[in-house]
């Protein structure tokens, strides 16, 4: 048993100091890695509470007078709220629209499958694998000609299309888990398809729909190809706002950190909440 070091189901090592020590070693390693991974984020959050001068002090200050200067400045100098509002609108809009299209489609495929259902699902997925950069030009030109450049509605449409395959797929797998019997019982009870979806399927699949929506929100919020290329100001979301800090017009670490912290905080919480469902969505169910 002494050779078994790194693997530690607790029940098997009630005794033995080697196991005990290995247990701690794993814990320490696990925490070290975790802190290292999280460190840049933590440092950024810390920096956001420094004044600009404290932020670039060398050696870096661990002790400082926390200030909300950075945050205040983000608010006053840049039109942060507009960008944040754009982020919210395009993310929520894209997600809501995708759900609107996807719920009936997933219902149809999950409960009334035909011989073509499997092919349809896989084809939908394959559209997700089209590299955006490959279709950047036509989309850009179409948007220009349709007057959709730098509009929220344009970005919402793109986000909806971008996420539709994932949303359909996730909903499909969640719907598949709703016992068919229950919908059939509804049918025996006289429910038509609308009743079936509204009174039975939606309430039953609500947790799945919610986590699908969450994933879509996260993907929209962090999307940084279309938002950088198709918006400039009026409809620009936070990704674009942060990108504007890349121009070398002076150093403003505190302000950058404050803006970044605000941009990532809400989505990080959502991400943590939905990490389990994320796996399903991101791998199209290929990993369980």
């Amino acid at each position: 048993m002494a050779t078994v070091i790194s693997d530690t189901p607790v029940k098997l090592r009630a005794s033995g100091t080697v196991g005990e020590r290995a247990h701690w070693a794993v814990g320490v390693l696990g925490w070290l890695v975790a802190l290292a991974m999280f460190f840049p984020i933590a440092w950024m959050v810390l920096t956001s509470f420094k004044s600009e001068t404290d932020a670039i002090a060398t050696p870096p200050l661990l002790l400082f007078h926390p200030t909300l200067e950075g945050y205040a400045e983000v608010q006053s100098r840049a039109n942060y709220l507009l960008f944040a509002l754009n982020s919210v609108i395009v993310s929520v809009g894209g997600t809501a629209l995708a759900l609107l299209f996807a719920v009936p489609a997933a219902y149809s495929m999950a409960f009334h499958p035909t011989r073509r259902t499997r092919g349809t699902l896989l084809w939908m997925l394959s559209t997700k694998m089209l590299p955006p950069v490959g279709v950047l030009i036509p989309i850009y030109l179409l948007f220009r000609n349709l007057g959709l450049l730098d509009t929220r509605i344009g970005l919402i449409a793109i986000y909806m299309l971008m996420n539709l395959p994932i949303v359909v797929w996730m909903l499909y797998t969640f719907f598949k888990e709703v016992p068919k019997d229950i919908l059939e019982a509804g049918r025996m009870d006289g429910a038509n398809q609308r009743d079936e979806i509204r009174h039975l399927l939606l309430p039953l699949a609500m947790p799945g729909i919610a986590s699908t929506g969450l994933l879509s929100l996260i993907l929209c919020w962090n999307e940084a190809f279309w938002s950088l290329n198709l918006t400039s100001h009026a409809a620009a979301p936070l990704t674009q706002f942060i990108a504007s800090f890349s121009s070398p017009e002076g150093l403003f670490f505190s302000k950058l950190s404050a803006a970044s912290t605000m941009a990532i905080a809400p989505i990080m919480v959502l991400g943590w909440i939905s990490q389990k469902q994320l796996v399903r969505g991101l791998t199209f169910g290929a990993v369980k």
Binding site: P179, D181, I182, E184, A185, G186, L204
Partner: peptide, 11 residues
Amino acid sequence: MVFQSYALYPH
């Protein structure tokens, strides 16, 4: 119809 799984509406 009474189903094998009962198919009660859980919500």
